[in-house]
Each structure stands twice: as structure tokens, then as C-alpha cells.
Design a binder for these strands. Structure first.
Lengths: 337, 337
DNA sequence: GTGAAAGCGCTAACAT
DNA sequence: ATGTTAGCGCTTTCAC
């Protein structure tokens, strides 16, 4: 009768060794499959002892000895933003596949808090940290923790001294706006963009301007609001107050697009009949928007894996851009399924 | 000129001690403010050395010695669900205030994966784990890791052997349904509920039935779908296919309510004119729904703090229910702001 | 193929 | 008030 063997105290490797009649070294060899070979019979005895004592290696001890913890940090602006929620999910899945645990923390999109977290997470003896930056708010990159591999994601441009990656905002914006122009024949496309440090080039706007130029259309108005639903809602008010309203608007994030949709709706403006909208991110949430949101989709899974990869790269500077594809739903004016 | 002093290798306490001209013990005393007093002047010398070497204590070593890591685990079904995203945010904030780091993992609402995570997180030398359970799917509670303080949240009923807490679903449902009955005069209220293990009492349904009974109305139809947007969308189809449609529906989560709203909208059914809806969770996302969602709100911050608290409690069994309040928006039929 | 032993960096008795 | 020192549990070199 398998009596639940409950030593409140965890068993140690030494105890396993004693029970199996071997030395602690052998226990280690068996559990880590190396670095020395062990006779099959001995190995089996060890495994049996492990089972009997419900032995789990003490990670702290292992980390102390080996110098690596099997944990990575993830700093996000907010998990309440559907894009970051999706990224978090994808990153955790990727990490889990490699046996890594993820320590998550939210910066609330405030640069100082982002900085604080990037500094404090490594105290927990982390193997690396990936930060979804909001640095564009300050123009100053997050000062990375010395000695801790750091990669910056959601970075549309290179970050000095670290591996960085992000969406190809130029291509994505162009994709979105071109759709509005080409298939729906809009001529006046507004843009609701995020707050951006003054001195930085704003790639998302470049893509938008290029698509407009290619179609021979004039750039429409641009309104800058935070990367949140509430920002999008404010943008709707601003846009509607304009002397001549745009007939379409491109939002630089799905969160903003959702707020925009809401603001338009409460003002009695119909989407897409009165104004078309397309977003940027391509989150699944968009499928449930009213109306369903057409949006340029970021390859979240690929980006998550790339981030994990970059963590292992020797320190250095790099920047990798990811192409987006358009998920067409109905907010742009396309017919529903 | 402050030359960035870059020893790629982290300084150790011993090095700090040497630089400050004291023993390692004193360094420890200063950093941990105890357990022995240190002369102010000495303490200052130590702090200066810490600064100079950019010393950060090695958490793994500390954990090994002290037996506690300052990390807690958080297992959620999905951070893509707005309620869990909000809970995660609140929990991280609470943990951060106490200097704790949070290791997060998503179970995707599959019980086996939940189980796996509850077992694997403690390997990382965690001080405790809180799991937002989906056990109602199986009726079987998550087998908690032996020796690791565990608390279950989102648990509407007690869980054998552990501290648990959750929303007072009876009260919350009653609140929501009573509003529909009393202020809006509905007589036929449907419910879209979650999938539930057959043998469990379903408190959310009790509250609903009680409110209905108090108003002298008949219970309407109930449809069971997963706790996700997609579930809510399916529910809409089911409800609309019914011979006599309810005039109002209560959804047991905001995620379901969002899907429901979407499904109703695509079928051309107006909310609240044709059918009123109220949700359960009271997430901020509801404010941006079309139309804005009236919903029973869970006290997320209080629950997060209580969960952290319960982690420190001596092992045992308890169950704490949290009351909800109604956030009234317009999906119920109330006028907009 | 297996064992003995050193030591990762820190804390907390226990000495002084 | 400060210093000495013994481990926490694990991995791994080195000897056998």
C-alpha cells in the first residue's frame, strides 16, 4: 500500500546516495547524465532511491555551484495590453520547452520602473533578462545590468550594446495603409501613433508616409497618444473634432485601435462605413472587437524564440527586424466571413 | 572621471569585506541590518565598498544558506484572459512591495498542465506557489507540492488541505441578476456559465437562481461554454437559436461576456435594446467593450494581497470568500455617462 | 566505474 | 562591536 511518504523536509542527494549504497558523486552523475559514465545497474538503484525519497535537487545549491539558475527574467510594460499578453504567453511556452522558468515583472510603461526592474531582477540570480522596452518614451535605452545577458524586444531600432529585435514597423505600417489605399480606395488616412521621444526616427510613420506617397495621396493628420486603449479613445475624440475628417485611420497598436473603435462607436460613427480602421499587432482579441479588427500581425512566436536565442548569444550588439502579415477582418471595409 | 568599473565577474562579500577592512560577517550584518549591531562608521565604510564594487549579493548562495529564495510562483490558466491579466498585475505589485519576485507560468486551463506546473515550479527553489485553479473542470483539486506552501485562488469553494480563496460567486451573481430584474424589469434571464465538474455545487448558478426566485421569475436557459471569448461567442449562437429568446443574459466571466457581445452583434442583435447582458469579473476592459459592459467586479487587489498573506500562514485548510460590487455601464440597459 | 573531498558565496553561531 | 568559522546541497576534479 503506497503510504504517502511525507518527510516535510526534502531529501538531499547524500540521503539518496546512502539509500542506494553509492557516493553522492554517482547520484549527480546519474541525474545529470554525466560528466562520468555510470553502470546501468547502479543507475537504476539510484533512480529507485530518488523515487522512494521523492528527491528533488535543490536548485539554489546547484545554481551556487554551477553559476546558472535556469531562470530568465521578462520585463513587460503591462500584461494588460493584449500584445504583451500574447508575447508573454509565447515566451513562456518557448522557455518552458527548454526547461527554463520565467520571472515576470511589469514596468507599467514607466521608464524608471523598467530600469529598476532590469536592475533588480538579476539579483535573483537570473541567467538573462529580456525586456520589452518602452524606451522610445525617453530616447534613452534601458541601462542593462552589467554581466547579465540582456535582450531588448519590441525595439524598432537598434539599442546600443545589446541584442535587440522588434517588428518591422515600416513594412507593417506600409502593409496596413496600402490595404486601405489600394483595396478600399481611401485617400485620407489618419494615424494614431504612440508617444515617442522627439529625436528618434519614427519608423511606423515612415511606412505610412511611403504607402501614402506611392498612392499619390497626402499624409493625413497624426495624433499621438499612449499605447493603451484609453489613448485610442482620446484619439477618436481628437480625430472627430477635425475640420475635415479622415475616412480611414491606422493605429500603431491594437490596444489603441480598440480604444479608437470604442470612441468612434460612442460618437455614433460607424466603422467601416463612416471611417475605416486598421490596427497593428494582429492580436487574437481583434477577432472579437466590434467590428472585428483588421491588423498587421507581429510574428509573436518567432519573436519569442528569437529573444530566447539571442540570450544565449555572446554579448554584443545586433538588431533583427521581423516582417508582419495582414490579418484581414472587417474594420477596414472588407466583407465579413 | 568615473571610469565604468567593469569587472565582468561579480564582486563577492569577501571582496567587499577586504576593501572595507572588515570581516565578511560585518558585511552581512550591514546588508541585512542584523542580526548584530554595527558601528555607524563601519557600516558606512562597508556601504561605500559595496558601491565601489557594485556588489550584489548572490541570491543562490543566500538561498542555500537561509533556505528561502524570495520568489513565489504564480500559475494562471492564461494571461490572455483579462481577469487573470489583472490578477497577475495586482499580484506582482503586491509581491514587489514585499521584495518578492514572481515566477509566472500559464497552464492554458488544462488541468494536467496545471498539475505539472505546480510540481515543477518548486524545483526552482520557490517559497510558495499560488495557483489560479481550473480544477472545477475535473472536480479534482491540484495535487499540491509537498513541503511547498500553496494557496489556491479563484476557488469558489474550499480545497482540501490548502488555503484557498475566491470570489463569492453566489453574492456576485445575485448582484448582477438582481440588477437586471429589479432596475430593468427583465423576467427571463439566461446564463452563460463555464464548464464545471458534474459533482460540484455550482455557486454562480445558485446566486442566479436565488435572485430569480426572489423576484418571482423563472430560471431561464443556461448554456455551458469554456471561460473564454470564443465560448461566449458560441453561447450567443446557442441562445439565439432558442424558441423563445431570453431578454437578458448573465455571463459568468467578462471574457465570455465579450464573446457574447461579439456574437450578438454579428447576428444583428442590439445590446441592450434587444437583449441586455451583464458580466462577472468587472475588468477594466469592459469599459471599452461595445457597448460598455456592466459587470460584477472582483476585488482583485485585495485578493492578491490575501493570497500573498495566505502563503505565509502555517499550512492548513481555509477558505475565504470575497464580495463583489457592481460596476454599472450600459450593456445592462442603464444610460451611458 | 566509483569514491573522497574541495568549494561555490553567503549567514549566523560562537568567540573575542 | 567585530572576527572566525562551519556549513547550506550540490557538482566535479582527481585519485583509485
Amino acid at each position: 500500500m503506497p503510504q504517502p511518504p511525507e518527510p516535510a523536509r526534502r531529501a538531499t542527494a547524500a540521503e539518496v546516495a546512502r539509500l542506494a549504497g553509492v557516493s553522492p558523486a554517482v547520484v549527480s552523475y546519474v541525474l545529470n547524465e554525466g560528466p562520468r559514465p555510470v553502470a546501468p545497474a547502479t543507475a537504476e538503484r539510484v533512480r529507485e532511491a530518488v523515487r522512494q525519497l521523492d528527491y528533488r535537487p535543490n536548485r539554489a545549491a546547484r545554481a551556487l555551484r554551477v553559476g546558472s539558475t535556469g531562470m530568465v527574467g521578462l520585463v513587460l510594460p503591462s500584461v494588460t495590453n493584449p500584445f504583451f499578453a500574447a508575447f508573454s504567453e509565447a515566451f513562456q511556452a518557448a522557455a518552458h520547452d527548454e526547461g527554463l522558468a520565467v520571472i515576470t515583472a511589469s514596468s507599467d510603461a514607466v521608464p524608471d520602473r523598467e530600469q529598476e526592474l532590469v536592475e533588480s531582477l538579476p539579483r535573483h540570480g537570473i541567467d538573462g533578462v529580456v525586456v520589452a522596452t518602452v524606451m522610445h518614451l525617453t530616447g534613452r535605452p534601458p541601462a542593462v545590468a552589467p554581466g547579465v545577458p540582456t535582450v531588448v524586444v519590441n525595439a524598432p531600432f537598434p539599442v546600443p550594446g545589446v541584442h535587440a529585435l522588434g517588428p518591422d514597423t515600416r513594412q507593417g505600417a506600409e502593409l496596413a495603409v496600402e490595404h486601405l489605399l489600394t483595396v478600399h480606395g481611401h485617400r485620407s488616412v489618419a494615424m494614431v501613433s504612440g508617444e515617442v521621444a522627439a529625436e528618434r526616427p519614427v519608423a511606423r510613420e515612415l511606412g505610412w508616409q511611403q504607402a501614402l506617397a506611392a498612392a499619390g495621396a497626402e499624409p493625413g493628420p497624426v495624433v499621438r497618444v499612449p499605447f493603451e486603449r484609453s489613448g485610442g479613445q482620446d484619439a477618436a475624440a481628437e480625430l472627430l473634432a477635425l475640420p475635415n475628417r479622415p475616412t480611414a485611420v491606422f493605429a500603431t497598436s491594437d490596444a489603441q485601435a480598440f480604444g479608437l473603435l470604442h470612441g468612434l462607436w460612442s460618437a455614433g460613427v460607424r466603422v467601416p462605413e463612416d471611417v475605416a480602421v486598421v490596427g497593428f499587432d494582429g492580436t487574437d482579441d481583434g477577432a472579437y472587437a466590434v467590428p472585428p479588427l483588421t491588423s498587421a500581425r507581429q510574428p509573436v512566436a518567432a519573436m519569442a524564440e528569437a529573444a530566447l536565442d539571442a540570450l544565449r548569444q555572446p554579448a554584443g550588439e545586433s538588431h533583427r527586424l521581423f516582417a508582419l502579415d495582414l490579418v484581414v477582418r472587417t474594420s477596414c471595409g472588407c466583407p465579413g466571413a
